[in-house]
Design a protein around this nucleic acid. Structure first.
Length: 272
DNA sequence: GATGCGTGGGT
DNA sequence: TACCCAAGCAT
């Protein structure tokens, strides 16, 4: 849930999940579509799909217990290098080189003297992080947590709180006069994109209690008569986008291809 | 290595 | 109001 999503937005959903599915086996025992529904508006819903798949793998291959080693974690669906290291370190107390966006930024400023880390994680960054990691397990876990928190709360991407920084006298970026970034991060386009349409379609499927006929997506709301219960609002939002039919086609095909949707009784629904 | 993939709070 | 950007991953 925390992948590319702020902690404060994750917390309430996370609590609900753990209440409903206290164990991997509990989640694995339900359809993947239920995971997508419970995901709510966290974004990147295929993460919900992969989390469900991970629960299935843990139930089948790990006797229902989340594995405690980096390579085993890395093999789970939706778990990459960062998540595998973070779980091994923070859940199991292991010494792992945890490198997330916060740690990358702290290292870039404090050590490398640049405003921002490189656009993508580099081998040099991994070597630097590994070289800074304390030798014993307990200290390494504290170090990972501390650097991550420093980046999240003080050494923030925009408007860093340098005057409140406990290590500002060690900061290479500050010492260099806080030079600006050497490149401009290119933001993701959103308005009018396939991605926006896809998000609106998933919003409809998430609230639908029965399969949604293609007409509901492709025809004007006025021509539809009535919509299945509950999806009036997201359906109106989708049509407000005024997207081209080809765009809707691509969104629906993409959702099917990704396993986020399936056809049933001539309509689209989340995987059951 | 580059791309596609959501959403909402902060500035 | 726009734009930034957030505990990344898979292909």
């Amino acid at each position: 849930m925390l992948q590319q999503t702020p902690v404060v937005r994750v917390l309430p959903v996370w609590h609900e999940w753990l209440k409903r599915w206290p164990t991997p086996a509990a989640l694995a025992g339900e359809p993947a579509g239920e995971a997508v529904r419970a995901w709510g508006r966290l974004g990147y819903p295929r993460r919900a799909l992969r989390l469900h798949a991970a629960a299935v793998a843990i139930t089948q291959d790990h006797n229902g217990k989340v594995p405690d080693t980096y390579p085993e974690l890395l093999a789970l669906p939706g778990v990459g290098g960062y998540t595998a290291a973070a779980v091994a370190a923070f859940a199991y107390g292991r010494r792992e080189t945890v490198v997330d966006t916060n740690i990358r930024r702290v290292h870039a400023r404090l050590v490398s003297g640049t405003a921002l880390p490189a656009p993508a994680l580099t081998a040099a960054e991994m070597r630097l992080a590994a070289s800074l990691l304390p030798a014993d397990d307990g200290s390494s876990v504290r170090w990972n947590a501390a650097v991550m928190e420093l980046g999240a709360l003080v050494c923030t991407a925009r408007a860093p709180k340098c005057t409140a920084c406990p290590v500002n006298d060690l900061c290479a970026w500050r010492a260099a006069g806080e030079p600006p970034p050497s490149y401009v991060p290119k933001g993701q386009a959103w308005h009018g994109t396939d991605r926006q349409v896809r998000g609106a379609v998933v919003a409809v499927l998430r609230l639908a209690e029965t399969p949604v006929p293609p007409d509901m997506f492709f025809r004007e709301p006025a021509d539809l008569g009535f919509a299945p219960a509950g999806i009036g609002v997201p359906l109106a939002a989708l049509h407000r986008l005024n997207s081209a039919p080809e765009q809707l086609e691509r969104a629906l095909a993409g959702l099917i291809a990704d396993g986020l949707a399936e056809m049933h009784d001539g309509g689209y629904r989340l995987p059951a």
